[in-house]
Design a protein around this nucleic acid. Structure first.
Length: 430
DNA sequence: CTTCTCACG
DNA sequence: ACGTACGTGAGAAGG
């Protein structure tokens, strides 16, 4: 059963989405073709290098054949791993990285995978509509479990997002960084890209009313600068002063903050800690950090428990705006299923509330554009981000319109913050 | 049709 | 004891 507020929101959103799909987005086909050519060349070279290690023809797209090549022909030693359903060791990126020192073929395989993936993106982006010469993805408004959009034919919500650091020379990274540059505004226009900053953590702060989380978003440091939520978390968990937090400690705190949204366990956190620090961290060490976290952020703990209780009692979870998601897993007889249900009960209201908010923002921005008789168009939505195609003479008014509308569309006890970028392509580089 | 892998938030 | 972080779509292989 759908709540009336949500139903109204969806009806209003429908018109905005329809226009977004019909308008589509312009692609720099020249850049796309050029990149495809370079990727193909790069890919052929990798194939030659890889095939040199074996006499057999190996289909690198086949995990079973790759398993054979690595662990039988080349005798690599898998690390503490179990086999999958087809009796093979996993050969995905994270597992290959662990084997990187064992054989020079491993980095080549990683690059090969990357080029194949990027080549497919190139092919998809070339399928522009013959009449409009633009790309028209389908934004599916219904169908996801949480209220988010999905996008298909092509999926415009998973375009590589790589920002190069100064002096980066890795050729594949450079090629990968071009993909958002292929999305360009039409003549006489610029893009405005507006994204909500940490919207899910802010929703968690709102739902929990946890004093420390509220403080992170409501208060400033002694110099009047905005606080960094991950840094504040680190200072609480590691019991040090805010200014003493190291980059590594901040990065650990960040993974805790995101982890809480997903119902991460101590086991999962220990793996993340090992990855971040490069040193082994036990489950017990992770448990220590988590218990310290929930001791300090006790409001978060209470909130997550309440979300589980609510879903247990009703059989569904609910967002701040009343969107529901049934969670039948909670009444499963299998413990692992029930645990999965608990994670959904914690995550869905948070992810779903963020989805509600950006739908409201899409509607509100569309209304404002109409009221002011502007020609600016919404061209993409990527979960917490809106991309507008804006005529040059509307730039000034649109910048404030978009930011203000998005930040004020739904009032929380903490501010919603929107980051705004403009440029002549989606990468906004320079 | 299912499994694996990989891109995004 | 159980399995281990949520939500998506695309492409390829293998059955």
């Amino acid at each position: 059963m759908m709540n009336q507020d949500i139903l109204n929101l969806e009806y209003k959103t429908l018109h905005v989405v329809m226009k977004m799909e019909l308008d589509g987005v312009k692609i720099d086909l020249k850049k796309c073709k050029q990149t495809l050519k370079q990727l193909k060349k790069f890919n052929e070279k990798l194939i030659r290098q890889i095939q040199a290690f074996t006499e057999d023809e190996v289909n690198l797209e086949s995990p079973p054949q790759l398993h054979k090549l690595l662990f039988e022909t080349l005798q690599l030693q898998p690390k503490i791993e179990k086999v999958g359903k087809n009796g093979c060791y996993s050969t995905d990126k994270s597992h290959l990285k662990k084997l990187i020192d064992q054989h020079e073929i491993v980095p080549l395989l990683l690059d090969y995978r990357k080029t194949i993936s990027l080549i497919n993106f190139c092919k998809q982006l070339q399928n522009v509509n013959l009449a409009t010469k633009r790309l028209h993805g389908q934004f599916n408004q219904t169908g996801t479990a949480t209220g988010r959009f999905s996008c298909s034919k092509p999926n415009l919500q998973n375009i590589p997002n790589v920002k190069l650091k100064d002096g980066e020379t890795n050729k594949l990274r450079i090629l990968e960084s071009r993909f958002r540059e292929m999305f360009v505004p039409k003549r006489g226009c610029q893009f405005i890209c507006a994204d909500y900053s940490q919207i899910e953590i802010r929703v968690a702060a709102e739902m929990s009313q946890d004093p420390f989380l509220l403080k992170a978003y409501n208060e400033t440091d002694s110099n009047g600068n905005k606080l960094d939520v991950h840094k504040l978390t680190a200072s609480e968990v590691f019991e040090i002063s805010y200014s003493e937090v190291t980059d590594e400690q901040r990065s650990i705190a960040k993974s805790i903050n995101f982890g809480l949204i997903y119902g991460k366990t101590a086991f999962g956190l220990s793996a993340t800690l090992t990855e971040i620090t490069g040193k082994h961290h036990s489950k017990e060490q992770a448990e220590d950090i988590m218990s310290k976290y929930f001791q300090r952020f006790s409001g978060v703990k209470t909130c997550l428990d309440a979300l589980i209780d609510f879903a247990d009692k009703h059989g569904y979870s609910e967002t701040l705006y009343g969107r529901r998601r049934p969670i039948p897993q909670l009444s499963s007889s299998k413990l692992s299923e029930r645990n999965a249900g608990k994670r959904l009960a914690m995550n869905s209201p948070i992810q779903g509330t963020a989805a509600d908010i950006i739908k409201m923002a899409m509607v509100a921005c569309d209304e404002q554009i109409k009221i002011k008789n502007l020609k600016s168009k919404l061209v993409l939505q990527v979960h917490d981000e809106l991309l507008f195609e804006v005529p040059d003479d509307e730039m000034v008014v649109m910048e404030t319109l978009v930011k203000n509308t998005m930040e004020n569309v739904f009032r929380l006890s903490i501010p919603l913050e929107v980051g705004l970028d403009k440029g002549n392509n989606w990468a906004m580089a320079h």
